[in-house]
């Protein structure tokens, strides 16, 4: 049975080459209306390259990419009119005030002066910066800057919001401030495509995730499902494991990672045998915890340094 929902993003066999480097390799994915899709992956996985293609900044090398059913190669102007983008770098205009940053940006979308001001004021309220409207942006804190970048991306009332590492470098308070606003936008039906290095961010905000490495998709699915499928629900971590633990784990065929000075065993608490590990081997310097997205991420993309 085929349902016909108009997709926000439809990428098929998308490729991006920089010289001889294949940054994005045969990537196919979709983003349905109202969905938040997260792209996860280590540095150099091709996340930013993918995102840059979706707003027509970087030309695609191969494949097909449609946003709102429009071809990005030919209809990029119409597409950009309906999307909002937070790039990785904070590129607010330092020559302008907080309010002017929004007003001038609104002009780029051909929003007339009066309406531009109204929307700007409204968005400043949304990000709690209305009392800083005449400040120079260089006087804002990191979290305020990020919120203003978000407000700027919303100035054209977009149908799709693209966020490239929205909370990198922020303190926990600022991160939560931003998350709350993103959740509100999501609740109002805004479609979001985001990249992040933070697994908690991905798990909290995204309906669906794509974990990628070296330009290819490794896994795709709902956060909880991905965790369940790839590492189970629970984890026991034992520091400096002795011979006995290692033999037990291998003998019973547990999914595990043996690191230099640590063994990580994945399983399910309902599993009696898994419980035995906890009872028999878990002394001091042992952690029992829920499995997280980070476990999946590290298992799939490796623990070595990526750069």
């Amino acid at each position: 049975m085929s349902t016909h929902i108009p997709q926000i993003i439809r990428a098929s066999h998308l490729g991006k080459k920089f010289g001889s480097l294949q940054a994005v390799d045969d990537l196919s994915f979709e983003l349905t209306p109202g969905e938040c899709l997260g792209l996860l992956g280590p540095n150099g996985a091709g996340k930013t390259s993918t995102i840059r293609m979706t707003y027509g900044f970087s030309p695609i090398t191969s494949g097909k990419l449609e946003i709102f059913g429009l071809d990005i190669n030919t209809q990029w102007r119409r597409i950009r009119a309906k999307i909002g983008v937070c790039q990785q770098e904070n590129n607010l205009d330092p020559d302008l005030t907080v309010l002017q940053n929004l007003e001038v940006f609104a002009r780029y979308f051909s929003i007339p002066g009066k309406e531009a001001r109204d929307r700007a004021i409204q968005l400043l309220k949304f990000i709690s910066l209305e009392n800083r409207k005449d400040d120079k942006v260089t006087n804002l804190s990191g979290g305020m800057v990020r919120r203003l970048v978000l407000a700027r991306a919303l100035i054209n009332s977009p149908d799709l919001l693209i966020l490239d590492e929205p909370t990198t470098g922020l303190d926990p308070q600022a991160r939560h401030q931003l998350w709350e606003r993103l959740e509100l936008l999501q609740k109002n039906g805004l479609s979001i495509l985001l990249t992040t290095h933070y697994m908690d961010e991905a798990a909290r905000l995204c309906d669906r995730l794509i974990i990628m490495d070296q330009g290819k998709i490794l896994v795709e699915g709902k956060p909880a499902e991905i965790i369940h499928t790839h590492v189970g629900d629970h984890v026991v971590e034992i520091a400096d494991p002795d011979e006995e633990v290692r033999e037990f784990v291998t003998a019973h065929g547990f999914l595990h990672d043996l690191l230099d000075r640590r063994i990580i065993i994945y399983g399910n608490e309902a599993d009696k045998l898994f419980e035995v590990i906890g009872d028999r081997f878990c002394r001091e310097s042992c952690i029992k915890r829920l499995a997280t997205l980070e476990d999946v991420f590290l298992r799939l993309t490796g623990r070595g340094l990526k750069e």
Partner: peptide, 14 residues
């Protein structure tokens, strides 16, 4: 330094 052009290129400006 200011990446002003980069920001403009997320809008309908070419």
């Amino acid at each position: 330094y200011q990446k002003t052009f980069d920001a403009m290129m997320t809008t309908p400006l070419s």
